[in-house]
Design a protein around this nucleic acid. Sequence first.
DNA 1: CGACTATTTGAAACGATTCAAACCCGGTGG
DNA 2: CCACCGGGTTTGAATCGTTTCAAATAGTCG
Lengths: 188, 188
Amino acid sequence: MLFHEGDSAESVFNLTSGSIKIYKLLPDGRRQITGFLMPGDFLGLAAKSAYSYSAEASTAVEACRFPRSRLDALFGQFPQLEHRLFQIANDELVLAQDQMLLLGRKSAGEKIASFLVRLAERQESRGGEPDHLALTMTRGDIADYLGLTIETVSRTMSQFKKQGLISQKSLTEIELIDRDQMMDRAES
Amino acid sequence: MLFHEGDSAESVFNLTSGSIKIYKLLPDGRRQITGFLMPGDFLGLAAKSAYSYSAEASTAVEACRFPRSRLDALFGQFPQLEHRLFQIANDELVLAQDQMLLLGRKSAGEKIASFLVRLAERQESRGGEPDHLALTMTRGDIADYLGLTIETVSRTMSQFKKQGLISQKSLTEIELIDRDQMMDRAES
DNA sequence: CGACTATTTGAAACGATTCAAACCCGGTGG
DNA sequence: CCACCGGGTTTGAATCGTTTCAAATAGTCG
């Protein structure tokens, strides 16, 4: 675990290798994962005095740590740095709104399809195989990201397998077989 | 309607009076409202070339319109303006994550309770009566904001009324009677 | 007052969850 | 080398919360 919701937000990180999940918890333990970070992503930017979410490594992780005070000084020196981070925050906001649509209005099948397609696009944009997905998260993580239970995630993926939409080499290796039909299921 | 998802994003607005809802639609018409804007709020900031959501007035509205090109020029001139907008974007991101937790993990009762409490806090922070809520949105809007149906919103509020948590002077006027117990139901 | 729309309420249906058990797989020690 | 363990995963059956469909009621505006 990297830090917890409520911890004083002294640092901003830039992930250089590995993968991180950020999430919020309810008092009774229910969890909502709000994002999976990949190398290049920033962590802790939105925080003011305290982090508003918890962050936990999914794999071994390397990151660049900046004291928040230093960052503020850099903003004064290099306005285009702040400009870039502003863009990044806006991009995240757009993604967050997509995720709200997913959480509030999509069925389990649509959620899983959207998730797999987005993961494929993300991997493609970093130069990976477009249809060969390497999942860095467990079924439980996927469930808590999509607002489902582990069982529903598992069942839905089994169904997709039976329908020939995906195939599964191992627990963490998924292949998208019919991406177009997958995007239809995603409804967006 | 002010603009539609996909429209070219020529303007940024600052709402001066009235209230606006922003939302995303699925091809089949399902709708997710991602925010209700109140005077002082910005609209269209996150957009790059095209708006990523639609915006619609809930009441009569007055707003300040900036051409996007002008705004970019202002950033060069007044770096602290961009700094302020960066802060605002970060605050919105924090709210968006709260909303994801709500949509993904809260029950209908918890959603409605959270919604009413947040509305009360928002109104309080603008100097209104803390327990006397003036709803600017319909039951349908509330449903599409919370990922519920109109009927569930209505039923849940009736239940709260029966339990003495709220009282209803008219359709748009709600009074929070037991705010503490309300916050307990909100689970956050 | 009458017509139209939004809201409330009720009953049935459905999708996702819960609870339970079986399975798979990598790691450990006999 | 293989039996065993423990975690995560898959599958099944029953249950539950929310939705859907339908009808009644309340509210708004001409």
